[in-house]
Design a protein around this nucleic acid. Structure first.
Lengths: 231, 231
DNA sequence: CGACCGCCTTGACCTTGGTCAAACCCACTG
DNA sequence: CAGTGGGTTTGACCAAGGTCAAGGCGGTCG
């Protein structure tokens, strides 16, 4: 974990929904307490239970948010990609400890912001409060959907849904997905063991729904895949 | 579902964390758009996907929030009890549709509030925004813990944790829990089938950890139960 | 008071996905 | 270019929890 850079990150900040209601002065306050962080593959950014003083915006790379069980099993909660923020909702938690651990899946660059500074700004900007509330509301909804798919659906459903949502919006082009994350991490994200993950992929291949070659998965039969993910 | 009452609910509102930053005028606005709702056992209050215009405070009874799968399986997300609010976070959702269904487990009385009115008040009260954000943050954390226990822990763990958290805070008195909700509903809340739920209870009984008689469960061996719920 | 109904329990069996171990496939290194 | 090691795949086996079906146990209501 490193920290030194004098690039102007204003465009990044302006593009970040959370900050888009801030005026120049407010943005400057955030910048003053901002840090650029370089973190290399495999290193931990923070751990579950640590006091949470900062939140983050991913510039480059991938950050994995996860929980560990007592026995050391890992459940990946989320994989955060460039342009996305994380841990911003912790500010308002009763205890203010990180509820998950975070580490880098690949060498990454982040911006980190002071919770305190942001809270101060929120105090003076109802608009920003509304942004943050929208953000939290959306996260709440995502978590709900996750619970839904864990309890009401099976592993194949979860995997197929994942593939479909990884698909870029422009449906017209060749529906190929290139996995940028190790399969076992995606598996954990979907609460599936690597072996099972692999087996499901081969089963889908056998059925002609997809073609797998290494990290590349071509969705051969979108309609049937979509049906699979509804029922 | 019914609506008629002229009791003064001010004490209820004052006790409600979400409203506790409101001044008298603001509270009056909420009251003006407030409705008292009587809903009898088994009736639906709203359904997943309906446009969300109101949120609720439970006065009496129990409300079950749940999701249905395509095949009709039900997963209970939460059981809401008197004094608690629900659906207040939906206001800031992109689409503003209820993300779950709600129905009454027993005859219940609720207050319902206008999302719009509340949003207007939030616009003028950063303090209230902070309350709502704290509330949402807490819910986010609870959902996370739910995902954790669904993926990192087994059915017995979930059931034991449930029993322990149902225990009133004053640990000194006789540790008896009286289930006020049908067992199959609790089972669904914990993502366990009723048969399995029952079997786990009898196993815990056999092992001398609890004594079950109908709806009453006496926790005979707190230390061992707590150990069960940690490992 | 007895019949009915909903809920809960119990038993036998099954299915999904997990476990363990071995082989495989590359990408990198020396 | 062989050697090493991480990630992935495959196979054989296993176990937790689900399914299906049959009873049991109270409540309620005629």
């Amino acid at each position: 974990m490193d920290m030194a850079d004098s690039t102007d990150f204003t465009p990044w900040l302006r593009r970040t929904y959370l900050f888009s209601a801030l005026d120049d002065a407010q943005l400057q306050v955030m910048k003053d307490a901002m840090q650029v962080i370089k973190i290399e593959e495999g290193r931990a950014l923070f751990e579950h239970g640590q006091p949470a003083e900062r939140f983050f915006l991913v510039l480059e790379g991938q950050i994995k948010l996860y929980r560990l069980s007592e026995e050391g099993d890992e459940k990946v909660i989320e994989i955060v990609r460039p342009g996305e923020t994380f841990a911003e909702a912790v500010t308002f938690m009763s205890g203010k400890f990180y509820p998950v651990s975070a580490s880098a899946l690949v060498d990454s660059r982040l911006l980190s912001f002071s919770n305190e500074a942001f809270r101060d700004i929120l105090r003076g900007s109802v608009d920003s409060c509304f942004r943050l509330m929208a953000d939290m509301s959306q996260r709440l909804h995502r978590r709900l959907n996750e619970i839904d798919s864990l309890t009401l659906h099976n592993a194949t459903y979860r995997l197929v849904s994942y593939l479909l949502q990884e698909l870029p919006d422009d449906v017209l082009e060749s529906p190929e997905i290139v996995l940028t994350t190790p399969k076992h991490v995606i598996a954990s994200r979907l609460s599936i063991k690597p072996e099972t993950f692999s087996r499901i992929l081969t089963k889908l291949s056998r059925d002609g729904l997809i073609v797998v070659r290494g990290n590349s998965i071509v969705l051969e039969d979108l309609p049937r895949l979509r049906k699979e993910a509804e029922l």
